[in-house]
């Protein structure tokens, strides 16, 4: 069996995994063979399943060393690059979830400050009815939070928030009436 993972190029998060017989990656390494035009991340919001599609152009395919636990929670794993190429071994991401909160016109993402030198890439997808907002963003170097501009209605929203280095969040987030 060979493990193929699909990861987000912005942040390195694994968002899907397949292991199958054979050495050749499906579709000769084209991520589209495993996700199509987009990989739909799904989350329950008010009893309905909401789709947060990750466009294929933001994703890449990697043949990784075997890691059976990646099937339990792909978002807990990441792909690290060395010299522009993915390392064979998946890395376990920091388990503390970033804190999320909606303000009036933004989604605030807060983490423990980690990198004083480089910006920390963030990718956020937020559902709002039929619409999905896609926000590639970054936490400034040395900072511990970022306000990602996104205006959504009051109520529950499906969110996918990927902060490079931290476990990914796929959950429901409430925008309160007066936030």
């Amino acid at each position: 069996m060979t493990l193929y993972v699909v990861y987000v190029k912005d942040t390195g998060h694994v968002v899907g995994a397949v292991n199958a017989a054979g050495d050749a990656p499906p579709g000769e390494g084209d991520v589209g063979a495993l996700v199509g035009d987009a990989l739909p991340m799904r989350v329950s919001v008010d009893g309905k399943v909401v789709r947060l599609p990750l466009p294929a152009e933001r994703l890449a395919l990697h043949t990784a060393d075997d890691e059976p636990r990646v099937f339990d929670n792909p978002l807990a794993y990441g792909v690290e690059l060395a010299g522009g190429q993915p390392k064979p071994t998946l890395v376990e991401l920091r388990p503390e979830s970033p804190e999320l909160a909606f303000s009036n016109n933004s989604l605030v993402v807060t983490v423990q400050p980690d990198d004083p030198i480089n910006d920390t890439p963030v990718l956020a997808l937020v559902s709002d009815g039929e619409k999905v907002h896609v926000r590639p963003w970054a936490i400034p170097a040395g900072g511990d939070s970022v306000e990602i501009p996104v205006t959504v209605s009051e109520g529950n929203h499906g969110v996918l928030v990927l902060v490079a280095g931290w476990i990914g969040i796929l959950a429901t987030e409430i925008k309160a009436a007066r936030s």
Partner: peptide
Amino acid sequence: TSGTATDGMLLPL
């Protein structure tokens, strides 16, 4: 072919 796949992925042929 057989294996394991996570939600949302297309199964390989």
